[in-house]
Design a protein around this nucleic acid. Structure first.
Lengths: 238, 238
DNA sequence: GCATATTTGTCCGTATGTATA
DNA sequence: CTATACATACGGACAAATATG
């Protein structure tokens, strides 16, 4: 039995491997680095030496460079010519820009999204809100932050456009970098939990225009609060 | 005077050159390929062998691969594992997706854009419309198409967000690939010229909501017209 | 201010696996 | 079914720019 079992497992493993292998090495490396940045193990402003990544991830420098270029295109990293790549350090202008874009995409997804009356999509929005509420009940502050991002992703999903969702994912990834430098994660996110609930309720009640305009106001105040906190931040050492 | 002039010009030229040199080779290659695709010298579905690009552009395979990866991320090219990269061939699903995204971004930029009352931005919108009108007067059909893209870019510019403008640029690049397969460029774009004018007028008159909703309807009919034409297209030989 | 070490940017050769003729 | 062509990935090499002592 063990023989037959191992044979089957080997076959499945090699099949899975052959499928996994077609995922380009550079893609895998990019995914790994992306996660490291998202989980804040690679902090804002940190340098990423190519050689170190080669030995750490056991791939060639060419592969590493291809992955880094991709992440630079996603604005997760920034490349300084002849100096290397660093984890992006979003400034006030970046925050303004990201919120200008979100202020178009998110209320726009509500007003002009094809799935704004789709029960499945609406239930996903409510689910993200409830996820945040559950996190707040157990005082899980990073859980609130995660649920908040989930909420805004589901709002954009009302548009039913994978391309738009990808772009929103990039914008939210930048927001995570912004929050890395903000110590008061709780104070920032908690007040917006209730507003998420109100918007979810409006959508459920079919009050589309009202929900869109409320979300637009919401984003304005969030942006201003962030910019205010950013102005009080210690000088960017780098 | 000539001496002084040439000296100044030489200095500027070398400065420009030194600035241009720090632009990574991969970036330059990506730009060149992007232009080739945009100008339709590289047709939809065309294969891009790495070796051929190396000799043609006088760069190494590593540089070529880096450029190709970037263009794949922009959806200008698609990569088939172990087979190579090809100029993207957008299908009906892609058209639906692109329009779902545009239907959020463009009316959203009008409704929630910070520059929607900015005279400079509004004059740019009117300018793009007039550019199309001038092209129509001299029966310059590709000029109409270009002006139409310009019009929609200026609409998005009402949001005042470079990030959003970049994303819109990627979406419009995909639209150019779609139009490559449509012979009736004139028949498609000409009717929308008048509607561009109406929207520009509404914006000038401050009728923001009306303009946004009209643009949303406009995009729906354009999408349906495109999908209809696409369904009549000869089978995709590839 | 200078010499040295490190790192990037770019290129080349090669091995391996996969798809096509 | 073999052979060819090509993509993929690796490792080594070198000049130029940068950082360090």
């Amino acid at each position: 039995m063990t023989d037959a079992n191992t044979a089957v497992q080997d076959a499945l493993a090699s099949l899975a491997a052959s499928r996994a292998v077609v995922v380009p090495a550079a893609e895998r490396v990019a995914d790994q680095i992306r996660v490291e940045v998202a989980e804040a193990r690679l902090r804002v402003g940190a340098r990423l030496p190519e050689q170190a990544l080669c030995t750490a991830l056991q791939v060639s420098r060419n592969t590493v460079r291809e992955a880094l270029s991709q992440l630079v295109a996603e604005r997760v990293l920034v490349r300084v010519p002849n100096r290397g790549v660093f984890v992006a350090r979003p400034g006030a202008d970046d925050i303004r820009d990201v919120y200008s874009a979100r202020m178009v995409i998110e209320p726009g997804a509500i007003r002009y999204g094809a799935r704004v009356t789709d029960p499945v999509a609406l239930s996903a929005v409510r689910g993200a809100y409830l996820e945040g509420r559950a996190a707040a009940d157990v005082a899980d502050w990073t859980g609130i932050a995660d649920a908040n991002q989930h909420f805004h992703r589901e709002i954009v999903a009302l548009a039913g456009s994978p391309r738009l969702e990808r772009e929103m994912g990039r914008l939210l990834a930048e927001m995570r970098l912004v929050f890395q430098r903000m110590p008061e994660v709780r104070e920032f996110h908690e007040p917006y939990l209730a507003r998420n609930g109100e918007i979810a309720a409006m959508l459920t009640d079919g009050e589309v225009e009202k929900a869109a305009d409320e979300l637009a106001r919401y984003l304005v105040s969030a942006r201003d609060q962030l910019l205010d906190a950013y102005a009080r931040l210690p000088a960017p050492s780098g």
